[in-house]
Amino acid sequence: MHNTAVKKTNSFALRLNRTFVYIVCVFLALLSIMPFWIMFVNATRSTPEIQSGISLLPSGHLMRNLEVLVGKSFDPITGFINSFTVSAGTTICAIYFSSLTAYALVVYNWRFRQPFFTFIVLIMLIPAQASAVGFYQFMYKIGWTNSFLPLILPAIASPAIVFFMRQYLLGALHYEIVESARVDGSGEFATFNRIILPIMAPALATQSIFVFVGSWNNLFMPLILLTQKEKYTLPIMVNLLRGDIYKTEYGSIYLGLSLTALPLFVIYFLLSRYIIEGVALGSVKE
């Protein structure tokens, strides 16, 4: 008798706890959704509508907002193409060369292997701001400002990605594969390109997402290096939305914001499973 009573109160407390947890989680979920929801909805509303209060349902002024937005120096297509060029270039450089470096650290037993790895771990946390002034002066001297190259090429040395790729290779690579490729007469570089890269495909995919999004969202370096309007990436263009040009055109401001965020939402909802897994993977092993 006594036992069942205890059990009952226990299960009641458990249910109460669970309800509380769900309430908090739903609240936090709404907190994640609402700002973006309002942003997308307001992108379709006129300024008077926006000033009259919050609405959760879209209105019909999308096209007019777009006209105003594009009519005043905000050029989402150019921004998109520029951002895409920089992010794609960065991703290819970072992923390919980090894999190559990681492979060299795992497979070959060369003299400075261990010191080099320690060195990579050490430079992982250097902030971009530490070298910004010197970097800018250097690029200015060789005439590379307003070029995408100084935003892309430094990604060849991406210590954090090398670290991740090395971790992955240590688990996924069997040395016999490399050996048998050698017996078949494959050169070392060809072995890497034709046999090792496909083995690393899952790691390449996950890291590509993070590198691409990270580069897409980067503001500091592009803001310093790119001064010509036609070279602006999307995050720099966001800055235009704050200025006096769009002062009371609230609908257009929200539309501009929505356009910069939309590609990221598409990527996120297509790949969220891998992204969520990737965040966990990238951290635990360190």
């Binding site: 999004v213 999307l234 800055n239 990221l264």
Partner: peptide, 10 residues
């Protein structure tokens, strides 16, 4: 995942 600048202006 969303651009920090976009969120700040938002």
């Amino acid at each position: 995942m969303i651009t920090a600048g976009t969120i700040a202006v938002l």
